[in-house]
Design a protein around this nucleic acid. Structure first.
Lengths: 332, 332
DNA sequence: CCCGCGATTGACAACGTTGTCTAGGGGCTA
DNA sequence: TAGCCCCTAGACAACGTTGTCAATCGCGGG
């Protein structure tokens, strides 16, 4: 089979290239490129011939080659903990919308809260030469990213700070939120307040625990260590932690849940509990105002976090090179 | 600056290539390739020298070039309606997990229920030469995909069938579910049951309306056309539809909500309604069992849909070429 | 001592596109 | 009518990698 015959009788899985289009239209390769990219310098008649060949062959530009040649992939990576976590849904969408408005595609991956997996994923994205990265970090050491950032991959961290590296960070002000949450419970007369949070390795968990202690101390209330539990947000762990706090001689009368995963399980436990127990949860979730028993939530505007981070990323890609900065937002 | 000096004093944004590594290690280009890819035929001593050069220069393979050369991108695309919709979270994650287990990355995009945007997005993914596509279609005509599928891009449709094209489809059996839902309400003594669904253009909306009518007819109940409302799932639209059905001389005593977006708004309307009104919603959602007023949900196993679709996709990529098939799953 | 063979290594082309540069043709001006 | 310039068009190299193939070396056997 001759080269120019490829367009006429194509093998399955073989696609026509600009060369095939050029041969069929009887023009040069570069002219096809010009037509495909809408570049000027092509007469209407030539353009028509090329378009006909494109349609006849079913040609579609191979962006892999284009990317190699141009050096830009027009894609960004988003690494978060779990694509199925409803907290990240709006964030994910916000990032995608900003990417889309800049003509970029979004490559998505879950770290499953595993630092090794985060690194593997991030480096795979770097090998793909994504233009930029939005990372909700699971790891606390990101020095492995330094060469990539130096090589030009813009990087923005969201929700949790970067570890041991200088980079842009967009955080929500969980400090104020956590304080308000605990203060809210204290104002309602609670004295024995439990805190159930995420794994201590995770920055926000650490931060919220600290704020819980600060708020308790500010009200002159003691904290019994049996009222504090950090760990994975798996339902079983949260359930047993909550059950333990609700039992015993000095049971808590209120709970502060460190994130939406914890809150959901806590609601379930409290729904089956004989005494009423107050609950304040970090992170809003759908219909939070209508669940029974009633709960209070500290809303975080996840969409804004994502939008801010993505916009910052594209600002960097457009050439902004001021020093990396931290951005804090109050709870939504 | 000479070519070989690139590794020594790199310009910002310029990365070392295998050529640079080869020059620094004093070996040939192909030897570097062999080391990077763990191919045999390299002495330990040579390998060590190459590894040192790689580390010293901070080399990372450029997958864009690799992709161009190999013809496979090791990535798949997932197109759905809205990344922020909690129904798609578990589906998204399931697809990602299967992709990951096959060493592929996931490119994600939202169609926003707009056929034109779906097509634009899908074709952009085809231009990137993704190995395969998982699509939750917004359009009802997918003939535009035929050339791409013929060219070898494996495609699986999920949740809704493909339009005017022969392709693999994974559906949940909404038929049984919708019938059960309406039968449930009838069994509880309801006679005037309203149905609020998604836009009629959307296959599942159409299907559930049909099943609603079937179930009503099976019980010998008439359907007043004022009890039926299809349209966008925006809260305002759903709210006004529900409010209208609950007013008037013959108000409905129960509602069947066609998907999770509708259900959420319906719950809100009913929470503010003086009379108790029963509600059955399609699609499960978190804490559905604890909202007030109480509701019943027809659960769909979105994760299973996604997992099934992705596995089917990779089976195709591994060479399976039996005729496209439809797969139906009962509600989870 | 020479030949052959396996192991190691590198030169070279190719993947499909875009940037650069040059050639040719036609119209306009002096 | 000669000279110039602009507009269209194509030839060619390059992006960074991998597959193919040939060359070289060391070593064992005849």
């Amino acid at each position: 089979m001759s080269d120019t015959a490829r367009g006429t009788s194509r093998r399955y899985g073989t696609r026509p290239t600009m060369k095939d289009v050029a041969a069929r239209a009887g023009v040069g390769l570069k002219t096809v490129s010009r037509v495909v990219n809408g570049e000027p310098g092509v007469t209407p008649d030539t353009e028509r011939r090329v378009q006909e060949a494109i349609t006849a062959l079913g040609f579609r530009r191979n962006d892999s080659a284009r990317i190699l040649r141009k050096g830009r992939t027009a894609s960004i990576g988003l690494v978060l903990e779990d694509l199925a976590d409803p907290f990240y849904g709006p964030l994910n969408r916000a990032v995608e919308e900003v990417a889309r408005s800049h003509g970029a595609l979004l490559i998505n991956g879950s770290s499953a809260e595993d630092p090794a997996r985060e690194q593997e994923l991030v480096l795979a994205l770097c090998a793909r030469r994504v233009d930029g990265l939005v990372i909700i970090p699971a790891a606390d050491d990101h020095r492995y990213l330094a060469p990539e950032i130096a090589a030009g991959i813009a990087t923005v961290f969201v929700d949790r700070p970067a570890g041991r590296i200088d980079a842009d960070v967009v955080l929500s002000d969980s400090f104020g939120g956590a304080q308000d949450a605990v203060a809210h419970l204290i104002a309602h007369g609670h004295r024995r307040i439990g805190f159930i949070g995420d794994q201590p390795r995770i920055h926000t968990a650490h931060e919220r625990l600290r704020d819980y202690r600060t708020a308790m101390a500010a009200a002159g209330l003691p904290v019994d260590e049996s009222w504090v539990s950090l760990g994975p947000t798996a339902p079983e762990r949260v359930r047993s932690a909550a059950t333990a706090m609700l039992a015993g001689p000095q049971p808590v009368t209120a709970l502060f849940a460190g994130n939406n995963r914890v809150t959901v399980t806590a609601v379930r436990v409290l729904a089956g509990h004989p005494r009423p127990v107050a609950l304040v949860g970090f992170d809003d979730f759908e219909l939070a105002d209508l669940v029974n028993p009633a709960i209070t939530v500290v809303a975080q505007d996840a969409a804004r976090l994502g939008r801010t981070a993505a916009k910052l990323l594209f600002r960097r890609l457009d050439g902004a090179d001021d020093a990396p900065a931290g951005w804090r937002y109050p709870p939504g």
